[in-house]
Design a protein around this nucleic acid. Structure first.
Lengths: 342, 342
DNA sequence: TACATTAGATAAATCCTTTTAGCAGAGGTC
DNA sequence: GACCTCTGCTAAAAGGATTTATCTAATGTA
């Protein structure tokens, strides 16, 4: 038999006092509400003795706050999102918040459905990597004055808080590095989508190419390919069709992984035959032989800023600030795969 | 202005009927409670029109169920746990449950604290990878008849539901494979802890060694080493101290990663100089040159069984069953790193 | 006609808190 | 003595649902 949870009412009855008094004491308002020292002590002792803990559900209902934050990402099993999840967890729990996660698979309908079910669960805040076409739903969240911060990508038309990284700048910088290392004909392998972060990376790449007058080819992989093997084959085709490519820039790490497989299959040597560089650092890149040059996003800073923003919005005390728009710098980790002399 | 949420009361007032009627209709009890077809239609239409959704908080308070499941693991950013997280998410949402995650860092105190805060949040179920010394807390959960299932490791003394894999059998099988490929002197690199899964893997390894009369060395890495580089150095030392080792069996993938770094640093060739094999498959293992042989846990099956168990316990209809103890088979992916002829 | 049954709806209790408004008594002031 | 202020505590409403017990009017039965 699951023993019934003790409630504030039980305490009041046991001590022969009112619920109100108990509540005031629990919430540290004894002084303010002129509860005597003696009474406060008695109640405090009793609560400690029976190990009473207030029901969060009842509190949430009463206060209209659930102390739950939703972490809605494209795919929680993706190393990048999982790492952020880990980092924000810490800060959330420290502030008395819990985190519910969910994955959208970058599907608008799924995202809309999730947001709608969360709204009826009275969650306090949303941390979201928006899917395409999510504007209207985000707008409705804004209208309802929900605490909200976007990350990884954002929606240019909307005046929301967001935390992203310098995608364009870092992509340009990395491309310049490749050119600097003697690459004349660089292939850019990216996802065929209009997510801001991917567009910005492409823009940064092209900016560098134009500036230096280099040659380039672009391969856009459909985001709907489930079978990873297919991606690898596409990249092989791309390389075969453009035999003069002497460097590849992958817009994200999972493409790079498939690219490495493709290169191995074709027997191309890195960096002698072709130089390699990828956005989104990964443990693997430091392990692979040769080690792969990559652009590392500042995970801790991202998590920090995300929680800072969302907690700031949730802090009832603070005056409501205008949306915070944070753009963080990345770090180019130059390793063996992009060096000419190696 | 955040517009006030409409409640069941508002609907009742707007239609000039009672709250009870609305509630019955919402909960599909119209027929059972003899609400007229006409009335049901009217209410249903109105609800659809204004887009009303009941407050989950209020429902939870009333029903004592929150439809939230806690997923408590060692570290959510670990690929293994993140993958499971992704898989159980799907099944949970499909059944109207949400998932709150948290990471224990394998620290009892943190785990205890987390469990205690979750209890006061009325979560419905717990999926847990237990830390050492968590017995008493788990026992109290069992006494309170909380829905509970352990995974990855379990607590032999306790009669709980759990989902684990055939650690010992697979480790033995893998070791036999190494011996079969000509290894005479195998090193086992593991974590220095008494988590059941690690002990079982060691036991399986030793069983094979004993059976075949091979030689072995064991290296136990302290789980408290934060700096990954240190692990790699430990493994280097181990290899230097035991130069006759011709194979290494890593009890989990992150040790293998460091082992690969160590071998690269020492200039050892895989598999010519030394054969390699690791527990816990990883994307990387298929990518590394040479590809690394590994034991793959059945992620989908684990997730499936976890949710089956927890939902089974949460299903009020079903008679309370005895704890389900599930032990799933792994798959040995034989790749280049363990083959003699390669 | 008198009584039992049923259809259709509802009042009110309950879940557990928080918080506003107010009450009773003691002491102070003129 | 009349009025005010302050201290210490509490009754009751509110938050949004579910569910039991009950009520009324209509129909069925004899």
């Amino acid at each position: 038999m699951a023993k019934k949870k003790t409630s504030i009412k039980d305490i009041a009855e046991a001590l022969g006092i009112s619920i109100t008094t108990v509540s005031f004491i629990i919430n540290g308002k004894a002084r303010e509400k002129r509860i005597s020292e003696e009474m406060t002590q008695k109640v405090t002792d009793y609560i400690k003795k029976i190990g009473y803990k207030p029901s969060h559900l009842a509190q949430s209902l009463r206060l209209g706050k659930s102390r739950v934050i939703v972490f809605m990402v494209e795919d929680i099993s993706n190393q990048f999102f999982a790492s952020i999840a880990r980092l924000i967890e810490e800060k959330a729990y420290k502030n008395g918040y819990k985190i519910i996660y969910c994955s959208t698979d970058n599907d608008v309908n799924k995202a809309k459905e999730l947001i709608s079910t969360f709204k009826m669960r009275n969650v306090d805040g949303f941390i979201i990597t928006p899917t395409p076409d999510l504007e209207t739903t985000i707008i409705s969240l804004m209208e309802e004055e929900q605490a909200l911060v976007l990350f990884d990508r954002w929606i240019p038309e909307l005046d929301t808080s967001y935390v992203v990284v310098e995608n364009q700048k870092s992509a340009k910088e990395a491309t310049l590095h490749l050119i600097d290392q003697g690459s004349k004909n660089i292939g850019f392998v990216t996802v065929d989508s209009n997510q801001t972060q991917m567009l910005d990376r492409l823009a940064g790449f092209q900016e560098a190419i134009t500036e230096k007058g280099s040659n380039q080819e672009t391969l856009k992989i459909s985001p709907f390919i489930i079978e990873k093997k297919q991606i690898s084959l596409h990249i092989q085709d791309f390389l075969t069709m453009h035999p003069s490519l002497d460097a590849l820039f992958f817009s994200t790490n999972y493409l790079a992984f498939e690219g490495l497989l493709a290169l191995a299959a074709l027997g191309k040597k890195i960096p002698e035959d072709i130089k390699i560089l990828s956005f989104d650092d990964h443990y693997l890149f430091n392990l692979y032989q040769p080690k792969i040059t990559s652009i590392e996003q500042p995970l801790e800073a991202i998590a920090e800023k995300l929680m800072e923003s969302i907690l700031g919005q949730l802090d009832a005390e603070a005056p409501s600030k205008p949306p915070q728009k944070v753009v963080l710098p990345n770090k180019l980790n130059i390793r063996e795969s992009s060096l000419k002399g190696f």
